[in-house]
Design a protein around this nucleic acid. Structure first.
Lengths: 191, 191
DNA sequence: TCCATTATTGACCTTTCAGTCCATAATGGA
DNA sequence: TCCATTATGGACTGAAAGGTCAATAATGGA
């Protein structure tokens, strides 16, 4: 009952993700959000709470969506090395959306460890991604693609760290980040 | 002539670097800066211009200082691999200053490529660092420490990208980033 | 000793911020 | 058809933002 909303909540949240990813939390003003999401001020507050709650919801959805995209990209590949490469390459931006950074990396850069709720989401996302990556690393070690002496969890953490670096460098204008990714992977390959 | 300033300009700039590194540009308020720098509002404007000019000067000095620190850390090491490891490890924070992020990485995360002056400084800093790293990579290839088949400039760019990732991960709470750094370097070593 | 010059202090200005209020509009159920 | 309920739009609010002004204080040179 009650008057139905005139906007699509999911689309609005997606738009909020883009606004926050471009400007960061504190530099994204309510006006930016209202304009970017295409809804009224009161609708925003009614549907999402305040700016901080909107950000947290945006960060959560961003984490989920990008994890699923990474999983899908890896699932397309048969051999482990190709899967890891696909995981590193995804969401690096193709020039067009270069100005829209990564909300995960951006929130770490902006908040560090100062916000418990942001910390919790970041920790969860990091754990999920490293688990995914570690599985494929183990596959590659078993199949002989990767050096047998590696520590799969250590490699997975390193790859997540590398991915953060790739995103930062891409946002900073480096158009060769894919070569960097392949170079690191080459160092993991069995002889 | 004229009344002498009561504060040390260099110290004040150093304090501004810490404030900006902790909060980012837009989240650092004038009040934060005034308090952190220990000077009055009008002194800040008189000595540094406005907030943006202060930030740009802080970023420039940060780039210079951290490049020199990296150079010094590398110069202490004889063999190339140890030098590259030292370059990666420096400024990762030891828990105490974990909350104070990297101003370079932070400015890329916050501004992307949207600000021409920030771009110019970031590009210059990146070029200087990759040049430094590439020299040591070439040394290592010549001495047989590193694989002879590497492209030194490509490796240098990758190491800079990795360093950004290490800083992001460290700021995000990963206390194993040094292992990630060593793991990547191990992949560059000659057999 | 006076003056030009620069620094400091605190009050002040305008704009923008995040957030709220309220009147109006649209719905489903009674 | 009326009502409870929810959404919308616009005006509004207090606080805080970045930045300026003007009065006062401290210096070196004439």
């Amino acid at each position: 009952m009650g008057r139905p909303a005139e906007f699509d909540r999911d689309k609005a949240l997606g738009a909020a993700i883009r606004v926050f990813a471009r400007h960061g939390f504190s530099a994204a003003s309510l006006s930016d959000l209202i304009e970017g999401m295409g809804i009224g001020r009161q609708s925003l507050y009614g549907a999402f709470g305040d700016k901080r709650r909107l950000f947290l919801e945006a960060l959560e959805r961003y984490s989920d969506v990008s994890r699923l995209r990474m999983q899908a990209a890896m699932d397309k590949e048969d051999n482990a090395l190709a899967a890891l490469e696909a995981a590193l390459m995804i969401d690096l931006g193709t020039g067009a959306d270069l100005e829209t950074g990564c909300l995960g990396v951006g929130s770490i850069a902006e908040f560090g460890r100062s916000d418990p709720e942001v910390n919790a989401m970041g920790d969860r996302a990091g754990a999920e991604i490293t688990t995914m990556l570690a599985g494929r690393v183990r596959d590659g070690m078993a199949s002989g693609e990767l050096k047998a002496t590696l520590d799969a969890d250590e490699v997975a953490r390193m790859l997540l760290t590398l991915k953060s670096g790739l995103k930062i460098s891409a946002r900073g204008g480096d158009d060769q980040v894919r070569r960097s990714a392949r170079l690191v992977l080459a160092g993991l390959e069995a002889e």
